[in-house]
Each structure stands twice: as structure tokens, then as C-alpha cells.
Amino acid sequence: MASTNPSAGPRHTPLPGAGLDAARMPGHWLLARLGKRVLRPGGVELTRWMLDTAGIGPRDRVVELAAGLGATARLTLARGPAAYTAVDRDPAAVATLGALAAPGPTEVRAVRSDAADTGLPGGTATVVYGEAMLTMQPEPAKRRVVREARRLLDGTAGRYAVHELCLLPDGLDPAHAELIAADLKDALHVGARPLTPTGWRELLAAEGFTVTARRTAPMALLEPRRLVADEGLLPALRIAGRALRDPAVLRRVRQMRRVFRRHGAHLGAICLIAVPTPPEP
């Protein structure tokens, strides 16, 4: 008889959501239990663009907000920044992130804290980024996280990057946006409030940032081609096999995919790079 607990995954490191059954588990935790490591709406391709455009290099002190399973952390560490700090609320994630080994002299640490109130010293980061986390916050919480990123950055020389879900196009009817949000919540079991590209830009501008670069991508998280591109062929096959062996998990995955496809014309991924807005003379 197939297990209804997807925790029997490919690794023994504790993952978020241990003890929850498949019917109630947040969607991103469910996918992580299946072995999916790239949980970003635009996939690893958009994440790489984000890191390239932010220009992370050996002199940078990087803070990642809601760092999760460490997929992006590994890409960042490969760039050899002077320091990398992961922030996450989940103790299992913090334990995993703190154990990451940098290929060079990068100082690596992980702190268990909230992205809106990290407890880190202000003005000590040159790059701050977060992925697939602002979308899950209501408007006031979104603003608190962006405000915290601004506080962490060093003067006007820092860069802030976000990689999130977005609604398309800019003029999308608000009633349609509410329908999409309701369907996402029903499928993901977590609130999701994506913004239009202009909405994301205005959010950053309201908290003292100027957007310098933007890219969008299809929301294809559960499509076979994206799954293989993000995870590799063999891991993708293993993920699919685990889902097929567990009816409860398979129902949830199919529900998520149906919602993503249903709203495919109006749901995408976006990455924005921003810098602190200089004070007016």
C-alpha cells in the first residue's frame, strides 16, 4: 500500500513540513518532499539571470532572504563572494544552509529569523535577494520585507533582487486577479498574492528602490521540459516516479499543474534588479 506521507524522499536531512500529510501540506513543501530542489517560479534559468545581473563577485557580502533548501545558495557560493548569509525561519533549512561548503574563502553562515526582521546589522550587505517569498505575503508584509532589504544594504551601492510570481498583463482586471489568487491558495494551501510587473516595481519604489533591470518568464514549474531543465533528467524521473506511487501526492501535483495551466496566459515569473534610490539633492 502506498504511503500518503511524501517524507520518504531521496535524502535523510529533515525538510520543512515533516509530520504533515499530503492533503494539507503547502505545495512547495510537498514538491520538496518528492525531491524537487528548484522551487522558483522562473526556474533555474531566471535565477541564474538574477545572479548574473546582480553581478555577484568576490567583494560582495550577500544576504539571501528565505533561503529554503539551498539551491540558489549553491549557485551564489560558486561565484565566490566574500560572505554569504542565509536567513530562514525553518530550523531544518537553517541547519542545511549552515552546513554548505564554499569552494573558496567565502564566510558562510545561516540565521534562523524572519525576512522582515533579520536581526542582522544594517548597512552590511552589498547584495540582498529573495525568491518565491514576497508573493506569499500580504501587502503590509511585502513592504516590511522590502524595507528590511533596504536597511541591510550598504548605502546606495547595494543591489536588491527579487524573483517572484507575477500577473500579466499590467492592466489585468482586479476581479480576475482575485480569482487567480483564490485558485492558487486552493491548490498550494498557502496564500499567494502575485502582483503585475508594474505592481512589483511600484512596491520597490515605495520602499526606496529604483528598478534597473527586469525579466519575465513563463510559469512552467511543473511542466516536463522545465522539470528536466531545473533538476536534470534522472532526478526529474525520480520525482515523477515518487508522485505516481502515491495517490494523495499525485492528486495534489495534478491540482497544482491544472491551476498553473488554467491561468497560464495571466500567470508568469518575474525577476527585478533594483538599487537604492539616491536621496534628492
Results as ranks from 00 to 15, higher is better:
Ser3Leu: 04
Pro6Ala: 02
Gly9Ile: 04
Thr13Asp: 14
Pro16Gln: 10
Gly17Met: 12
Leu20Arg: 07
Leu20Gln: 08
Leu20Cys: 01
Leu20Tyr: 06
Asp21Cys: 10
Arg24Phe: 04
Gly27Ala: 15
Trp29Asp: 11
Leu31Val: 08
Arg33Cys: 11
Gly35Lys: 11
Leu39Ile: 04
Arg40Ile: 03
Val44Trp: 05
Arg48Leu: 15
Met50Leu: 15
Asp52Tyr: 11
Asp52His: 09
Thr53Leu: 01
Gly57Pro: 07
Pro58Arg: 14
Arg61Val: 05
Val62Ser: 11
Val62Asp: 08
Val63Ser: 08
Glu64Val: 03
Ala67Ile: 12
Gly68Cys: 08
Gly68Lys: 10
Gly70Thr: 08
Ala71Leu: 13
Leu75Gln: 11
Leu77Gly: 13
Pro81Phe: 10
Ala86Cys: 10
Ala86Pro: 15
Ala86Trp: 12
Val87Gln: 04
Asp90Glu: 15
Ala95Asn: 12
Gly98Cys: 09
Gly98Ile: 15
Gly98Met: 12
Gly104Ala: 11
Gly104Gln: 05
Gly104Leu: 05
Glu107His: 00
Glu107Lys: 02
Val108Asp: 06
Val108Phe: 05
Arg109Asn: 00
Arg112Lys: 09
Ser113Arg: 12
Asp117Tyr: 03
Asp117Leu: 11
Thr118Gly: 02
Gly119Phe: 09
Pro121Ile: 09
Pro121Gly: 05
Ala125Leu: 11
Thr126Arg: 08
Val128Met: 04
Tyr129Arg: 08
Met133Leu: 13
Leu134Thr: 07
Leu134Tyr: 06
Gln137Ser: 01
Pro138Ile: 03
Glu139Val: 01
Pro140Tyr: 11
Ala141Leu: 06
Arg143Ala: 15
Arg143Pro: 06
Arg144Asp: 13
Val145Gly: 08
Val145Phe: 12
Val146Gln: 03
Glu148Lys: 00
Arg150Phe: 02
Arg150Ile: 00
Arg151Thr: 00
Gly155Ser: 14
Gly158Met: 03
Ala161Phe: 09
Cys166Ala: 12
Cys166Leu: 12
Leu167Asp: 03
Leu168Met: 14
Asp170Ala: 07
His176Tyr: 06
Ala177Tyr: 09
Glu178Tyr: 05
Glu178Val: 07
Glu178Thr: 14
Leu184Lys: 00
Leu184Asp: 00
Lys185Phe: 06
Ala187Cys: 11
Gly191Phe: 06
Arg193Gly: 08
Pro194Met: 04
Pro194Lys: 02
Thr196Ala: 08
Trp200Asn: 03
Leu204Tyr: 02
Ala205Gln: 01
Ala205Ser: 06
Ala206Cys: 05
Glu207Arg: 03
Gly208Phe: 02
Phe209His: 03
Phe209Val: 03
Thr210Met: 00
Thr210Leu: 04
Met219Pro: 05
Ala220Lys: 00
Leu221Ala: 02
Arg226Gln: 15
Leu227Phe: 04
Val228Ile: 13
Glu231Trp: 04
Leu233Glu: 13
Leu234Val: 15
Ala236Lys: 04
Gly241His: 05
Arg242Pro: 09
Ala243Arg: 05
Pro247Cys: 07
Pro247Gly: 06
Leu250Phe: 12
Leu250Trp: 14
Arg251Asp: 13
Arg254Ile: 07
Met256Tyr: 09
Arg258Tyr: 07
Arg258Met: 12
Val259Leu: 06
Arg261Asn: 09
His263Trp: 15
His263Gln: 08
His263Pro: 13
Gly264Ala: 15
Gly264Thr: 00
Leu267Arg: 07
Cys271Tyr: 07
Leu272Gln: 07
Pro276Lys: 02
Thr277Ile: 02
